[in-house]
Design a protein around this nucleic acid. Structure first.
Ligand SMILES: [Mn+2]
Ligand SMILES: [Mn+2]
Ligand SMILES: [Mn+2]
Ligand SMILES: [Mn+2]
Lengths: 218, 218
DNA sequence: TTTTATATTTAGGCAAGACTAAAAAAATAT
DNA sequence: ATATTTTTTTAGTCTTGCCTAAATATAAAA
């Protein structure tokens, strides 16, 4: 139905729309996809003709209903495959993204229906990201960044914002994963760093770490 | 490492080399891939430069060691994924080929290692075709076409030569699958047709059917 | 052996999806 | 309000993998 390149553009635009309101700019797409703005212009003009997004020259783009549906389906596939890789093949959560980038483009409705069932229709992927249902609807949860939590409050880790292998490996070293209980013992106003407790361990984390961990307060 | 198109060419040539001895002709490749001879010439020249096959103008091609390795690995992936689809996702054996055609191109050594383990390192795919090991070596078995079996002999179905959905569905209707015991009750010399027994049922099969079923004699 | 038919290759082109360089529009600064 | 910078688009190219049409080599027939 859609090419690999088209699917990747739609997915990137979908994520950008969720990161900030309003139209998505050509340069933002180019940067997020590690490609050139001129290449982006080419592609968004094609996608506009196919009614997957609306585009006015110099004014950025916005996905249409159809474009959202296609993008959400690619993301659904990506996240379901990540669950498969972790739950069934015992991959670690920092190893699955690149493989899922390929698997998300496999075309077969039936395959995804059956994979979903096989996995027990999971709601979240290994990084805590919600899996869109077959209509593209995302389950909303009230999660907050750890950086927004006050001193002496506690939360359970429910996801990561950044999911680079480096960050995930850092979390492993600190024994933090989805479901881990975190207590904020101290918070430094001037640089946003924190002292937290995880299990029996107490340690320092930077603002950068706190801003990339999602928690649910208890 | 290799493009999707390159992998598909290598795979097709690999199969053609196994179907008949000697060099593989441009036209044979074109026909098996449903493409034009001129396109084949283009590609085999590229593959020859990459030392994946040897090519002399007008004389056909032959895979090198490296070419065989690459092709066998694609086939290994194809067949492992077919096992996954049938064993884990409960697809029927006539539904898996098209999806495996896509999955066979996913690039990750680790993925295949783990998938293989997850599936219990199967030796054969759902159609009875052998799965190459990680070095590209195919397990040899002495299977024969049902059409070569004499009257009053018996065999166990161990594979199909053709694995089109139509043929597989015909076999289902006749309750024949891998492992099914078949007795040859009669054989018509002039058209190669047979009367066979499967379970309690006795029925007629054409030469075409008998020539596409592999059995192992008891 | 010469002619005819078939197989294969070459030449030239096209679409997708990328790129660089240059032009044009929009945003910012003076 | 004008000048400068930044963003975006256009123009022109490149590579991959395909195509058609024409040329050429090989195989088959006369
Ligand atoms: Mn991912
Ligand atoms: Mn994820
Ligand atoms: Mn197959
Ligand atoms: Mn098979």
């Amino acid at each position: 139905m859609f090419t690999l390149a088209e699917e990747n553009y739609l997915k990137a635009i979908f994520h950008l729309e969720h990161d900030s309101a309003g139209e998505v700019s050509t340069n933002a797409i180019a940067e997020s996809m590690d490609t050139r703005p001129s290449s982006v212009t080419d592609m968004i003009q094609k996608l506009a003709e196919k009614k997957l997004l609306t585009y006015k020259r110099y004014k950025g783009v916005k996905l249409t209903k159809e474009g959202i549906k296609v993008a959400a389906n690619v993301i659904r596939k990506h996240r379901l495959w990540e669950v498969f890789l972790v739950e069934k093949l015992n991959f670690h959560w920092d190893e699955v993204h690149e493989i899922a980038e390929q698997l998300e483009h496999i075309q077969s409705e039936e395959l995804i229906t059956r994979l979903d069932k096989f996995l027990g229709s999971p709601d979240f992927d290994p990084h805590g990201d919600p899996i869109p249902d077959k209509h593209g609807v995302l389950k909303r949860t009230e999660k907050r960044l750890l950086s927004e939590i006050e001193k002496n409050q506690q939360g359970v880790c429910v996801g990561v914002k950044e999911s680079s292998a480096e960050f995930l490996q850092y979390l492993d070293k600190k024994k933090i994963s989805i479901g881990t209980k975190i207590s904020v013992l101290g918070k430094e106003f001037f640089d946003g760093s924190m002292i937290i407790q995880v299990g029996a361990d107490q340690f320092f984390i930077s603002k950068m770490v706190a801003e990339n961990l999602f928690v649910q307060t208890l």
